[in-house]
Design a protein around this nucleic acid. Structure first.
Length: 883
RNA sequence: GGUCGCAUAGCUCAGCUGGUUAGAGCGCCUGCCUCACAUGCAGGAGGCCCGUGGUUCGAGUCCACGUGCGACCACCA
């Protein structure tokens, strides 16, 4: 077998194996291949995106699952692609244009769209290239983009169907308006600022029509008074009863508005009287609807006062606020001002303060769509993991509101509605109409707006598979099995996909949703581009290797909790890859190809106890890892393999195997060689989903690669019951205890590392343990003369250690070392043991414990106490003897 | 205002359905370049398991309340 370098260098192998896998088509999901299938669709990253640590975690988890299932022989589809990300992308390109001194309006719509497409061609697949660096085994032949013709067709089909069902409608409503992006937003895109923002509550007097005192209203937004069309008070509020039905005069603008009674008003807040601005406040709009009040828009799309604002026309909303407050004060209408935390929403994309704005938009009626999505979770057809997200999901769906889907942007799916200049009616069509469907007029014009990005995303699980065509892919791979995503898009995306899945496919798009951790920095802040606190994953890969990054982030991410990550932590993964590399290096160097062709035979009588032990342990680890992966406990799976490989296989088995390997004539040698290779080879397969590159590289050096030319198409290990061997596990545990005891005594007593120490085991020790200790302790603990004590023999003045299942193990120091130092150490030991003994005896002294606890527990405690007593006594004796 | 989550070693976290001596990685201390690996080996120190009360023979583990972080939802001007 070929020599390996002393350290593992990922940069030399990763790209090569990725190319190899792609060339051989291992990522391709063949829909014609029979047998069980597994499918999953990627949460499509935005084309404006570059790889973040969040993507790294999310896609590593998907890749682990997909590789795991693929190795189990399933026809596995991981469908990749990107999202056109309407506002985000338009903003990016507009910024670029601004650098050239251009605006999109100067270019015109068509030219602007052309520029965005150009941008997309150039940068749009950056993130997908980065995913390849990470090792993502996506079926790239099926890559999709939300603005592809096929997906656009799906979007239009869905719009038309919903329109025909009356679930899509156009209406005048208060929506969240971003005055910078110039578009309407959905509720989910208007982010509530935690705890509000610093502002004021202004108390303004609206005098009565007849010149009376009128009423004082409290407001955080005095500029909107320009659009007030009423004052509302609670119907039961006695203070204002006399004003009901009367009119008050709006200061500054001198308009008369009625005082109405509405239960939505909280009499406890402010003065109990609220100004009603139907066009700029959602609650006020509802009040106005109940009372038939007019709505007066006083701001334009940029947030400036419009022609309805009289002298304030043209002022920005915040400037207008300042001016109006000044004027109110000047004219004596301002009663008082107090500081106040004002509830504010900001634009998800540009952070601009949202303006509640009355405008005509397209909406989806969500209530009917939500029902099946609710039922799915209630009936358990859809499982959310971790389960606590279920409540969040249900609560949102139970209180769902209509979805504003029109956006005043140019980048996106154009709304498929045409308005007739002659009859004024709308034509909604799957293919672009030439004439009005109602009157046949040719003077029709398409709606200028586009659809919310999520209006294409919610179809992703089936639009990517060819819907509305009835394709073979859909038939074979829909519904998908599981969705892995971030909980931050549970409403934006997950819940809506479930709704669309039932509505258009008649089936939930996935059975399970696993919400992965949020990646934070060491201070607990979410990693984000704007904060600049996220390491660049590509640099991490460059420096540590993709496997190291994958392993580290997975092992660190507990299910359901956030993960704190810093680049330096990746050393954990790099060290592990290197450890594995060197274990393989040892095996390859020590073992001949011919020795390893057949798997070990557990029925062979010559098989050593340590061989049976490691094989048994391997089976347990295989079961644990499989169970962990099936339950989305990715961290447990990764950690389980790590612990086994490092601390059982490397620390113990490899060291032990050196004995058998050292003797070419021994019959144990070929057996050990086989076991050594088999455990390594099985571990590689077990680990492959987590660390695909290093496992493939090593696989290629092993003889098994002749049978499976890539580890990707080798079977995932399954546990072999008949290899479990509890006796061997107990035996080797005892052996390890003896070895640790000797090492511990040597270290604690500060003895020379190379000085061979005579060892004595208790007379009662079982033969098997004695034989094992005789064989392995000289090599692993630098022991010599490992013997059993004679009956009743007790080496006085010699240090000892208690070993579980063995008893007191002695090291004979007489005549070997200076006893002065040794004595000091013994004294320290004694103090420790006595403290422990005190604890146990205290427990046993309590009658309730002794009487009510199960007999075996009490018995164990008694045994422990007696062991401690004898240990303390022996230490005391040693001290005496050494004096 | 409501709902939910988290508080365990200096740091980041494991501890499932309550039961022997509470674990890991990093960091720290001691000794080792032992022929796979110093990205390593061996040994070690370090913990009123947030507080209070309760259930129990027994609680890091269950319950209640409190404190401190965090997340999500909500039309109080």
């Amino acid at each position: 077998m070929a020599e390996l370098s002393k350290t593992y260098d990922p940069s030399r192998v990763e790209d090569r194996w990725y190319a190899f896998w792609e060339e051989h088509g291992y990522f391709y999901a063949d829909e014609e291949r029979p047998g069980p299938r597994f499918s999953i669709v990627i949460p499509p990253p935005n084309i404006t995106g570059t790889l973040t640590m969040g993507h790294v975690l999310n896609n590593t988890l998907q890749d682990i699952l997909v590789r795991f299932k693929r190795m189990q022989g399933m026809v596995t589809l991981w469908l990749p692609g990107t999202d056109h990300a309407g506002i985000a992308t338009q903003n990016v390109v507009e910024k670029q244009l601004a650098k050239e001194g251009l605006s999109r309006h100067q270019l015109g719509r068509e030219e602007f769209e052309r520029r965005v497409w150009q941008w997309k061609e150039k940068y749009g697949s950056t993130i997908l290239r980065q995913l390849k660096k990470l090792g993502a085994s996506c079926d790239w032949r099926r890559e999709r983009f939300t603005l592809d013709p096929g997906l656009s067709r799906a979007v239009r089909e869905v719009f038309v169907r919903l329109y025909e069902k009356g679930l899509v409608y156009r209406g005048q409503r208060i929506i969240h308006w971003c005055v910078r992006c110039h578009t309407a937003l959905s509720d989910e895109e208007a982010i509530v600022v935690e705890g509000g923002e610093a502002g004021f509550l202004w108390y303004v007097r609206y005098p009565a029509e007849d010149g009376g005192a009128g009423v004082v209203v409290a407001t955080t937004r005095p500029e909107t008074m320009l659009g007030d069309t009423a004052v509302a008070v609670h119907p039961e509020d006695d203070r204002y009863r006399s004003l009901l039905g009367k009119r008050v005069r709006l200061p500054l603008v001198n308009r008369l508005i009625p005082v109405v009674a509405d239960p939505a008003v909280d009499p406890q807040f402010g003065t109990g009287a609220v100004k009603v601005t139907p066009a700029h406040d959602a609650a006020d709009f509802e009040i106005s609807q109940r009372h038939g009040l007019p709505a007066l828009v006083v701001l334009d799309s940029e947030g400036k006062v419009n022609e309805n604002g009289g002298p304030y026309r043209g002022l920005d909303r915040f400037t207008a606020r300042k001016r109006i407050v000044e004027d109110l004060e000047k004219e004596g209408w301002l009663e008082r001002t107090e500081p106040y935390r004002v509830p504010v929403r900001r634009c998800e994309r540009c952070q601009t303060v949202i303006e509640p704005y009355l405008s005509t938009q397209w909406f989806v009626r969500m209530k009917p769509l939500a029902e099946p999505a609710l039922e799915a979770v209630r009936r358990g057809e859809l499982q959310l993991i971790p389960g606590r997200w279920t409540g969040v999901y249900l609560h949102w769906l139970e209180n769902i509101r209509d979805w504003c889907i029109s956006r005043q942007l140019w980048w996106g799916h154009r709304i498929p509605v045409w308005y007739c200049a002659r009859c004024g009616k709308e034509t909604v069509a799957r293919t672009d109409p030439q004439v009005c469907a109602h009157c046949g007029a040719r003077e029709i014009e398409q709606d200028a707006d586009v659809l919310d990005t999520w209006f294409s995303s919610w179809l992703w699980p089936f639009s990517t598979m060819g819907w509305p065509e009835r394709t073979r892919t859909l038939e074979r791979f829909y519904p998908t099995d599981v969705l892995i995503t971030g909980a931050d898009i549970i409403f934006f995306w997950v819940a809506r996909m479930v709704m669309a899945g039932y509505e258009f496919m008649g089936a939930c798009p996935f059975r399970q949703v696993y919400f992965n951790s949020i990646v934070r920095d060491l201070q607990g802040r979410k990693m984000s581009k704007s904060l600049g606190n996220s390491p660049d994953p590509l640099e991490v890969i460059e420096e540590y290797g993709a496997d190291a990054l994958r392993f580290t982030i997975v092992v660190l991410a507990p299910p359901g909790e956030d993960v704190r990550y810093a680049k330096e932590k990746t050393e954990l993964g790099r060290h592990f890859a290197n450890k594995l590399w060197n274990a393989a290096r040892f095996v390859l160097r020590a073992v001949e190809d011919s020795e390893t062709l057949a798997p070990p035979d557990v029925s062979a009588p010559d098989l050593a106890a340590v061989d049976r032990w490691i094989l048994s342990r391997l089976q347990r680890v295989v079961s644990e890892v499989r169970a962990a992966l099936d339950a989305f406990r990715f961290n447990d799976a990764a950690l389980g393999i790590y612990q086994f490989l490092w601390h059982e296989y490397c620390d113990w088995y490899i060291e032990m195997s050196k004995l058998a390997l050292a003797d070419p004539s021994s019959p144990a040698r070929p057996l050990a060689a086989r076991v050594l290779t088999h455990v390594l080879e099985t571990s590689l397969r077990l680990l492959h989903p987590v660390m695909p590159f290093v496992t493939e590289e090593l696989w290629q050096h092993l003889p098994v690669s002749k049978a499976a030319p890539s580890i990707m198409i080798a079977p995932y290990p399954s546990a072999q019951e008949e290899w479990l061997n509890p006796e061997a596990e107990v035996q080797v545990e005892r052996l390890m205890g003896v070895i640790r005891a000797v090492r511990n005594i040597r270290a604690e007593l500060g003895l020379v590392p190379n000085l061979p120490l005579p060892v004595r085991l208790p007379h009662a020790v079982d033969e098997q343990t004695l034989q094992l200790a005789r064989r392995y302790a000289p090599l692993l603990a630098k022991a010599r003369e490992v013997e059993r004590l004679a009956p009743g023999e007790h080496p006085s003045g010699e240090p000892s250690a208690l070993v579980e299942g063995v008893g007191e193990v002695f090291v004979l120091l007489r005549g070997l070392v200076e006893t002065e130092e040794v004595r000091e150490r013994l004294a320290r030991d004694l103090a420790k043991v006595e403290k422990e003994l005190q604890q146990v005896e205290g427990k046993l002294a309590r009658t309730d414990f002794v009487q009510r606890a199960p007999a075996e527990v009490v018995q164990k405690e008694r045994e422990r106490a007696s062991a401690l007593r004898s240990r303390a006594a022996s230490l005391e004796r040693h001290l005496q003897a050494l004096r």
